[in-house]
Protein backbone atom coordinates (compact mmCIF):
# COMPACT_ATOMS: atom_id res chain seq x y z
CA UNK A 1 0.00 0.00 0.00
CA UNK A 2 1.42 3.42 -0.80
CA UNK A 3 0.99 6.72 1.00
CA UNK A 4 1.91 10.16 -0.22
CA UNK A 5 3.66 12.44 2.25
CA UNK A 6 4.38 16.08 1.60
CA UNK A 7 7.27 17.41 3.66
CA UNK A 8 8.19 21.09 3.89
CA UNK A 9 11.78 21.63 4.99
CA UNK A 10 14.35 24.35 5.40
CA UNK A 11 16.22 24.74 2.14
CA UNK A 12 19.61 23.87 3.60
CA UNK A 13 22.45 21.53 2.72
CA UNK A 14 22.01 18.05 4.12
CA UNK A 15 18.28 18.07 4.74
CA UNK A 16 17.73 15.38 2.12
CA UNK A 17 20.32 13.22 3.90
CA UNK A 18 18.45 13.61 7.18
CA UNK A 19 15.18 12.55 5.63
CA UNK A 20 16.70 9.66 3.68
CA UNK A 21 18.66 8.51 6.72
CA UNK A 22 15.51 8.51 8.82
CA UNK A 23 13.68 6.33 6.31
CA UNK A 24 16.58 3.92 6.04
CA UNK A 25 17.09 3.64 9.79
CA UNK A 26 13.43 3.09 10.64
CA UNK A 27 12.96 0.66 7.79
CA UNK A 28 10.38 2.68 5.86
CA UNK A 29 10.36 1.83 2.17
CA UNK A 30 10.59 4.82 -0.17
CA UNK A 31 8.89 4.28 -3.52
CA UNK A 32 9.85 7.68 -4.79
CA UNK A 33 11.11 10.97 -3.43
CA UNK A 34 11.13 14.29 -5.23
CA UNK A 35 12.36 17.59 -3.91
CA UNK A 36 12.22 21.14 -5.21
CA UNK A 37 11.76 24.76 -4.23
CA UNK A 38 8.39 26.20 -3.18
CA UNK A 39 6.60 29.50 -3.48
CA UNK A 40 8.39 30.54 -0.30
CA UNK A 41 12.03 31.44 -0.11
CA UNK A 42 14.28 29.04 1.82
CA UNK A 43 11.57 26.41 2.00
CA UNK A 44 11.82 23.15 0.05
CA UNK A 45 9.04 20.70 -0.60
CA UNK A 46 9.44 16.97 -0.81
CA UNK A 47 6.88 14.53 -2.11
CA UNK A 48 7.58 11.11 -0.70
CA UNK A 49 5.67 8.02 -1.73
CA UNK A 50 6.14 5.30 0.89
CA UNK A 51 5.20 1.66 0.68
CA UNK A 52 3.65 1.19 4.10
CA UNK A 53 0.45 0.37 5.89
CA UNK A 54 -1.52 3.12 7.59
CA UNK A 55 0.14 2.70 11.01
CA UNK A 56 3.63 2.72 9.55
CA UNK A 57 2.87 5.76 7.40
CA UNK A 58 1.62 7.65 10.43
CA UNK A 59 4.75 6.70 12.32
CA UNK A 60 6.86 8.01 9.42
CA UNK A 61 5.01 11.32 9.73
CA UNK A 62 5.74 11.53 13.47
CA UNK A 63 9.41 10.73 12.96
CA UNK A 64 9.70 13.33 10.21
CA UNK A 65 8.17 15.92 12.51
CA UNK A 66 11.00 15.36 14.97
CA UNK A 67 13.58 16.61 12.48
CA UNK A 68 14.57 20.18 13.36
CA UNK A 69 14.70 21.09 9.66
CA UNK A 70 11.17 19.93 8.97
CA UNK A 71 8.53 22.66 8.99
CA UNK A 72 5.44 20.59 8.33
CA UNK A 73 4.42 17.14 7.19
CA UNK A 74 1.12 16.26 5.53
CA UNK A 75 -0.19 12.85 4.71
CA UNK A 76 -2.31 13.38 1.61
CA UNK A 77 -5.80 12.03 1.62
CA UNK A 78 -6.13 8.82 -0.38
CA UNK A 79 -8.85 10.16 -2.68
CA UNK A 80 -8.46 13.90 -2.65
CA UNK A 81 -5.11 14.50 -4.25
CA UNK A 82 -3.45 15.11 -7.61
CA UNK A 83 -0.38 12.99 -8.21
CA UNK A 84 1.80 13.45 -11.26
CA UNK A 85 4.91 11.69 -12.48
CA UNK A 86 6.94 12.59 -15.56
CA UNK A 87 8.67 9.99 -17.70
CA UNK A 88 11.08 10.28 -20.59
CA UNK A 89 11.17 7.08 -22.64
CA UNK A 90 13.61 6.32 -25.42
CA UNK A 91 12.03 3.69 -27.60
CA UNK A 92 13.16 1.94 -30.78
CA UNK A 93 11.17 3.34 -33.69
CA UNK A 94 12.58 2.53 -37.09
CA UNK A 95 10.62 3.75 -40.11
CA UNK A 96 8.52 0.57 -40.30
CA UNK A 97 7.02 0.96 -36.79
CA UNK A 98 7.30 4.67 -36.20
CA UNK A 99 3.71 5.44 -37.10
CA UNK A 100 2.39 2.87 -34.65
CA UNK A 101 4.51 4.35 -31.87
CA UNK A 102 3.27 7.82 -32.74
CA UNK A 103 -0.31 6.61 -32.48
CA UNK A 104 0.37 5.42 -28.96
CA UNK A 105 1.89 8.79 -28.14
CA UNK A 106 -1.32 10.45 -29.24
CA UNK A 107 -3.58 8.12 -27.32
CA UNK A 108 -1.62 8.78 -24.14
CA UNK A 109 -1.47 12.51 -24.84
CA UNK A 110 2.30 12.27 -24.59
CA UNK A 111 4.84 14.26 -26.64
CA UNK A 112 7.75 13.38 -28.82
CA UNK A 113 10.67 15.52 -27.67
CA UNK A 114 13.53 14.04 -29.70
CA UNK A 115 13.77 12.07 -32.92
CA UNK A 116 16.75 10.05 -34.12
CA UNK A 117 17.07 7.77 -37.12
CA UNK A 118 15.86 4.66 -35.36
CA UNK A 119 14.48 5.89 -32.03
CA UNK A 120 12.21 8.46 -30.38
CA UNK A 121 12.23 10.12 -26.97
CA UNK A 122 8.70 10.38 -25.57
CA UNK A 123 7.70 12.66 -22.73
CA UNK A 124 4.67 11.65 -20.73
CA UNK A 125 3.07 13.24 -17.68
CA UNK A 126 0.38 11.62 -15.61
CA UNK A 127 -0.46 9.58 -12.60
CA UNK A 128 1.56 6.48 -11.85
CA UNK A 129 -0.89 4.10 -13.55
CA UNK A 130 -0.90 6.03 -16.82
CA UNK A 131 2.88 6.06 -17.03
CA UNK A 132 3.12 2.37 -16.18
CA UNK A 133 0.56 1.68 -18.91
CA UNK A 134 2.44 3.66 -21.55
CA UNK A 135 5.69 1.95 -20.67
CA UNK A 136 3.97 -1.45 -20.95
CA UNK A 137 2.51 -0.57 -24.35
CA UNK A 138 5.89 0.60 -25.64
CA UNK A 139 7.79 -2.40 -24.30
CA UNK A 140 7.18 -4.66 -27.34
CA UNK A 141 8.81 -2.08 -29.63
CA UNK A 142 11.99 -2.11 -27.57
CA UNK A 143 12.54 0.36 -24.76
CA UNK A 144 16.12 1.64 -24.72
CA UNK A 145 15.99 3.89 -21.67
CA UNK A 146 13.49 5.25 -19.14
CA UNK A 147 13.95 8.27 -16.91
CA UNK A 148 11.27 9.09 -14.33
CA UNK A 149 10.91 11.91 -11.85
CA UNK A 150 8.91 10.16 -9.18
CA UNK A 151 5.62 11.55 -7.96
CA UNK A 152 4.81 15.16 -7.21
CA UNK A 153 1.53 15.67 -5.40
CA UNK A 154 -0.90 18.32 -4.19
CA UNK A 155 -4.12 18.05 -2.23
CA UNK A 156 -7.26 18.77 -4.24
CA UNK A 157 -9.65 21.56 -3.39
CA UNK A 158 -9.17 25.16 -2.40
CA UNK A 159 -7.64 24.72 1.05
CA UNK A 160 -4.22 26.27 1.05
CA UNK A 161 -3.50 24.16 4.10
CA UNK A 162 0.21 24.02 3.80
CA UNK A 163 0.66 27.71 3.26
CA UNK A 164 -1.52 28.65 6.20
CA UNK A 165 0.30 26.22 8.45
CA UNK A 166 3.73 27.27 7.29
CA UNK A 167 3.09 30.89 8.19
CA UNK A 168 2.77 29.85 11.82
CA UNK A 169 5.80 27.55 11.92
CA UNK A 170 8.59 29.01 14.05
CA UNK A 171 11.94 29.73 12.48
CA UNK A 172 11.04 30.17 8.86
CA UNK A 173 11.90 33.84 8.70
CA UNK A 174 14.58 34.14 11.32
CA UNK A 175 18.33 34.02 10.73
CA UNK A 176 19.45 30.75 9.23
CA UNK A 177 22.36 28.87 10.64
CA UNK A 178 24.49 26.64 8.54
CA UNK A 179 22.99 23.32 9.27
CA UNK A 180 24.10 20.08 7.78
Amino acid sequence: MSHVLVVYTDDEPGVLTRVASLFRRRGFNIHSLTVGPTERERVSRMTIVVDADEILARRAVEHLRKLVNVLEVQQLDRARKVVRDLALVRVKAGPEIRSRVLELVQVFRANVVDIAEDSLVIECTGNLEKIEALVEMLRPYGILEVGRTGAVALARGSRAGARRTLATVPGTDGPQTMSV
Binding site: D10, R65, K66, V68, N69, V169, G171, G174, P175
Partner: peptide, 11 residues
Amino acid sequence: EGAVPSRHLRH
Protein backbone atom coordinates in the same frame (compact mmCIF):
# COMPACT_ATOMS: atom_id res chain seq x y z
CA GLU B 1 19.43 38.48 20.79
CA GLY B 2 19.53 37.90 17.05
CA ALA B 3 20.49 34.30 17.69
CA VAL B 4 17.38 33.46 19.71
CA PRO B 5 16.32 29.97 18.59
CA SER B 6 12.84 29.03 17.48
CA ARG B 7 13.03 25.95 15.30
CA HIS B 8 12.96 23.65 18.33
CA LEU B 9 9.40 24.87 18.88
CA ARG B 10 8.17 23.62 15.52
CA HIS B 11 6.54 20.43 16.61
